[in-house]
Computed example of a mutant assay.
Amino acid sequence: MTQRSYPESPGFKVAGASQEAAEAIAPQAPRVRDRVLQCIRMLPGMTADEIAAALGLSILTVRPRVSELHRQGEIQPTGGRHRNSSGMTAGTWEVAPPLPNQHGTTT
Results as ranks from 00 to 15, higher is better:
residue 4 R to A: 10
residue 4 R to N: 12
residue 6 Y to S: 05
residue 6 Y to G: 05
residue 9 S to N: 06
residue 12 F to D: 07
residue 12 F to C: 08
residue 14 V to L: 09
residue 14 V to D: 06
residue 17 A to E: 14
residue 19 Q to M: 10
residue 20 E to K: 14
residue 21 A to F: 12
residue 24 A to V: 04
residue 25 I to G: 02
residue 29 A to D: 05
residue 30 P to T: 06
residue 32 V to C: 04
residue 35 R to N: 11
residue 35 R to I: 00
residue 36 V to N: 03
residue 37 L to Q: 10
residue 38 Q to T: 13
residue 38 Q to M: 08
residue 38 Q to S: 14
residue 39 C to V: 06
residue 40 I to G: 01
residue 41 R to P: 02
residue 42 M to K: 14
residue 45 G to R: 02
residue 50 E to Y: 00
residue 51 I to L: 01
residue 52 A to S: 13
residue 52 A to K: 06
residue 54 A to Y: 01
residue 56 G to A: 08
residue 57 L to W: 04
residue 58 S to W: 02
residue 59 I to N: 07
residue 60 L to E: 08
residue 61 T to Q: 12
residue 67 S to T: 11
residue 67 S to F: 04
residue 68 E to N: 05
residue 69 L to H: 03
residue 69 L to I: 12
residue 72 Q to I: 06
residue 77 P to T: 09
residue 79 G to L: 12
residue 79 G to S: 11
residue 81 R to F: 07
residue 84 N to L: 11
residue 85 S to W: 06
residue 89 T to I: 10
residue 89 T to V: 15
residue 90 A to F: 03
residue 90 A to V: 01
residue 90 A to R: 05
residue 92 T to N: 06
residue 94 E to I: 10
residue 96 A to H: 11
residue 103 H to F: 12
residue 104 G to H: 13
residue 106 T to W: 00
residue 107 T to A: 10
residue 107 T to W: 03
